[in-house]
Nucleic acid binder design. Sequence first.
DNA 1: CTGAAAGCGCTTACAG
DNA 2: CTGAAAGCGCTTACAG
Lengths: 333, 333
Amino acid sequence: MQDVADLAGVSSKTVSRVVNNEPKVRNDTREKVQKIINELNFQPNKSAQSLAADRSLLMGLLYDNPSSAYITQLQAGVLAACNSHGYGLVIHPCDNEDDALLSNLQLLLASSRMDGVILTPPLTENKVLLDYLDVNNIPFVLISPLDQEQSTPLVYTDDTLAAKQSVQHLIDFGHKRIGFILGARQRSGSEMRFLGYKKALEENQIAFDSALVVEGDFTFESGELAAQQLLRLDQPPTAIFASNDYMAAGVMKAAIHLRISVPYELSVCGFDDLPVARYLTPTLTTVQHPVSLLAENAGKLLIKQLKKYADAFELNEVHAEVIVRESTGPVKV
Amino acid sequence: MQDVADLAGVSSKTVSRVVNNEPKVRNDTREKVQKIINELNFQPNKSAQSLAADRSLLMGLLYDNPSSAYITQLQAGVLAACNSHGYGLVIHPCDNEDDALLSNLQLLLASSRMDGVILTPPLTENKVLLDYLDVNNIPFVLISPLDQEQSTPLVYTDDTLAAKQSVQHLIDFGHKRIGFILGARQRSGSEMRFLGYKKALEENQIAFDSALVVEGDFTFESGELAAQQLLRLDQPPTAIFASNDYMAAGVMKAAIHLRISVPYELSVCGFDDLPVARYLTPTLTTVQHPVSLLAENAGKLLIKQLKKYADAFELNEVHAEVIVRESTGPVKV
DNA sequence: CTGAAAGCGCTTACAG
DNA sequence: CTGAAAGCGCTTACAG
């Protein structure tokens, strides 16, 4: 940095101002310094920056999610935000049910001194954790929390709309008895997807039948059990909407065992567009969840809180899209 | 740190010695200092450590792999090694085919100053990248490179043995015509799995038939194509061993379309025990690949190179295990 | 085996 | 709008 200052004929403090994008630098000074920075390919030393400014330039990504596809997309999005703003990413898989969660996290925060963290469901509902962050003044952003009206910075996907469109797709194929498998409790996605289902029925004047709604918890096994229950009804559904792809895979398994052909005798819809959706036979109609974009926005939102001189940024809702594949078709006549 | 020094009645330099596990500290001094460290819950400031010692205490994990299940296991293993040795982890998904790979990496190395990196296939065979690391004196460890005899530090799994056991499992069920779908070229796993297949045949005096060996590239689609080719032979195989689970899923799809029942008319084996293995119907017999353990060992091996005073560590081979599920059964008589 | 001094490369708080 | 001084919390190189 001193080299840059010497070559540009300014003090190191001014170089620091340019590097940190601080205001109150004359434009020609800024340009002159920036030119030398580019020429020398100068990269500020992160350790020195953190030590002097007492900020680590690190953010944490905390998750407790069984789906590795979800995790890698999450990471890709947050990394994109971090890389373009000089932040480092500390990933931290954790177990929301573990009593040691908080003490582990305290250790991590003490050792890596993260400037802020991003939380994903179900950690977004962990009161103890949220309180701890609040009390210790650690900025955070929530991804898809249950309550999207709270004042905490957060991002979410409009799952309601996507679910409604997906169910509409089934209705367009002539389906009237459409089974619904709920996701895990206390996840915003579960509630929104169910709401979308109900809205679609309502808009098409199809009576809601609670017998067609079964509990699930996002796992393959719960989907299989739920489907068995639905398919053994006196009046079984002609289509099943599962709140995620793992449960939809379970529905496919149940159908195979009951010798019910998909999509000829039963249409199946999933949600999330996980890799498994493409590997099943038939391939699964599902909803593409823009996790990566969502995570990138979460990263930007956090950086906005952390940086002194950050760009404005306010996009916190992203949209999901229905992907039609082979597992849905016209209702059997 | 000064607080610790004062309370322990020593100089800060001695505290530093204890923190860094340096030798040449009298045992009672060490214990006295350690006691105060524990009492105060003292955590050394990483930024100050890196700045003073000119090491970032960061390692990079570089990967270009389509399987998110593989990636999350990899991360879990390396994180375990990092956490227990005070290292931070920088994850870096990259594209081995991208011409900008090296320049991106240079940027990353310049900005985060990683002390060393871990490479996974296919990056382990990227000569340009390896040369760059060599020339710039950046220590690295390879996970599962093609050439396991090279002098570079590396870790790998004994896929040959696991593949042999898996094929033996098929032979025990009476199969004699066993199809084999190769994995992607230039991956050590592909070669070892094929070798295991050949060894199993040889040990059971079953003649090797090249018509039963088909190319694949670890993707679902390549597995489906390969299976179609195998199943249309005049003398089709009664069992197919696919070099990974994605290709095995493709085999299942081909079988369904050709109305061949698995496992009654065709046994199918995969490799890796990816989540999809459990979601298929029937569930897939496969080989559990201890990626996480492998990655942890890679992390330890790298730390051994980076630390001045590290523990001895020499375990670089781990074992894979056959998991028998529903997709394999007795040969049809 | 232990310690006093200097310095790592930045930012802070202040002065002008 | 710009700069000189001090300091962040460690480790290095040296001395004893």
